[in-house]
Amino acid sequence: MAAATDDAGDSNEMIRVVSSDGEHFEMPEAAANLSLVLRHMIEDDCADAAGIPLAVVAAKPLAKIVDYCTKHAAKSSGLTIEEAEELKRFDAEFIEVDTDMLYDLLVAADFMGVEGLSKLAVQRTADLIKGKTPEQNRETFGIVNDFTPEEEEEICKENEWAFQITKPPSRLC
């Protein structure tokens, strides 16, 4: 069984969760409460020794989510500037993951209702999109261009300037 090691929050109770591939994890209740789904399950007394099953979250992303929630629950209030900076560094390192894990975190955080992690994964994905050409984004995200040539041309015309990597004009004033 994988278990979170950091202490988090005032509650000593540990909450068990079960990944889609059957691996069990434990985390402090304060950490579990960062997930909307788990919080409601706990409030409804549905968290038992068997663990809360999470159907679409595999063990690898779940382990990351447990780490994230445990870290953030332990630093949830009364942060000093140094602690806030440390948490920021933790987030930056935490989300430096490969594309497969990013997808898993994106879906799992949304699924479990972990707002902070969801925002982090969403922002990381947006960072992958920014500044790229449409073709580069299709390649990055495995997207098929489903426009007809006519549609593509029409959309290009709407924002023609945006598709040109231009140099600053030499003639000014």
């Binding site: 999109i129 299709r138 098929v144 426009f147 709407e158």
Partner: peptide, 8 residues
Amino acid sequence: PRAPLVCR
């Protein structure tokens, strides 16, 4: 401005 051209 470039994103709409990725796909429908």
